[in-house]
Amino acid sequence: MTREEIEQVVTDELGHIAPEVDIDLVDRDGDIREEFDIDSMDFLTLVTGLHERLGIDIPEADYAKLDSLDSAVSYLEMHLVA
């Protein structure tokens, strides 16, 4: 899977949770919870959705590594390759 494809999956899932957010206006390095206005429950929904779409287990201890759109994509890219 290319980085672009992974990013598409992440933005799809975020779009499902926060459909009102215009992805083009988002700061990709900004705090993902703030940029997409998501709470802790939404974040868990995101992680579950990514697990289902990509088959990657994201342990709770790694949640902090998904703190922005870019870092989430990088994290998934690294774990898909491994």
């Binding site: 499902h16 926060a18 459909p19 009102e20 957010v21």
Partner: peptide
């Protein structure tokens, strides 16, 4: 989706 987005906004 539109309705959920509307409510969230």
């Amino acid at each position: 989706r539109e309705l959920r987005g509307h409510a969230r906004k």
